[in-house]
Design a protein around this nucleic acid. Structure first.
Length: 252
DNA sequence: ATGGTAGACCTTCTA
């Protein structure tokens, strides 16, 4: 996060999002550059962790009902989930999600990924029952369909593309959520991540793993959703690009 | 061909 602060701030000045979800900030709360975002007019909530993981939620509207950590496993100390109510005139409850990578398949990390996804499904069901506008946003580390990657065969053995992983993602979606990028007709499978290695960006060997899931009340307001692909070719890029959803104030 | 890069950090782990 701090290594790429200028890159991120540049994107914020251009895109000017009302709400933003960050993942993999890789720092404790005290080291998150909250003042830089506050200077741009954002309210900041951070659930940080040293070296690994860490998530943050930024909003031009006040944040209420802040929940840090995904419920359901008391001994889980990895900072991968933060949720808050964005108290705009049309409020929306937003979660920033850094779902476990899960590699290698067959080891404890993969079991942890599947447990984490089961817990996310529980939380998602609880949120749906509120019948509010809800957006679950972030790095899901899930390639939902073969069309969401350049070469499905090369991902066959990877935790991001296992049948169990994809089924767990569908199970969350089928509770009643809309995959915002898939729902808008234009480029539904456009990639959101290109590895730093082996010229993945230059060869367009990308994958779509960053998702925005919307409750029915939020999906009713969906106008557009697209990854900001061009930033991947910029200075000091992340290996992920922002996925931006536009919601209207009134039902479409 | 199991390669290659990046970040935070205790010189290795995670992705």
């Amino acid at each position: 996060m701090n290594a790429r602060l200028e890159t991120v701030l540049g994107w914020f000045r251009d895109a000017n999002p009302d709400v933003a979800c960050l993942q993999e900030i890789k720092c404790v709360n005290e080291k998150f550059p909250a003042d830089a975002f506050e200077a741009l007019g954002y309210n900041v909530a951070v659930h940080g962790q040293k070296t690994y993981n860490g998530v943050a939620l930024l909003s031009k509207w006040p944040l209420e009902d802040v929940l840090k950590g995904l419920p359901g496993e008391e001994e889980d100390e990895q900072a991968r989930y933060l949720e808050a109510l964005v108290s705009a005139p049309s409020p929306i409850r937003v979660a920033t999600i850094y779902l476990p990578n899960g590699n290698p398949v067959g080891a404890e990390k993969f079991a942890y990924k599947l447990r984490w996804m089961a817990r996310l499904r529980q939380r998602a069901a609880t949120l749906l029952a509120l019948e509010e506008r809800v957006a679950l946003c972030g790095d899901y580390n899930v390639i939902p369909e073969p069309e969401d990657c350049d070469d499905p065969e090369s991902w066959r053995g990877d935790a991001l593309f296992q049948p169990e992983t994809r089924a767990a993602f569908r199970a969350i979606k089928w509770l009643g959520f809309t995959d915002a990028q898939a729902a808008v007709g234009r480029d539904p499978h456009a990639y959101t991540f290109w590895d730093y290695q082996a010229g993945a960006w230059q060869r367009d060997h990308g994958i779509r793993i960053d998702h925005i899931l919307l409750s029915p009340q939020a999906a009713d307001r969906l106008v557009d959703c697209e990854p900001h692909r061009s930033v991947r070719g910029g200075e000091k890029p992340s290996d992920h690009v922002p996925v931006v959803a536009t919601l209207s104030d009134c039902p479409a």
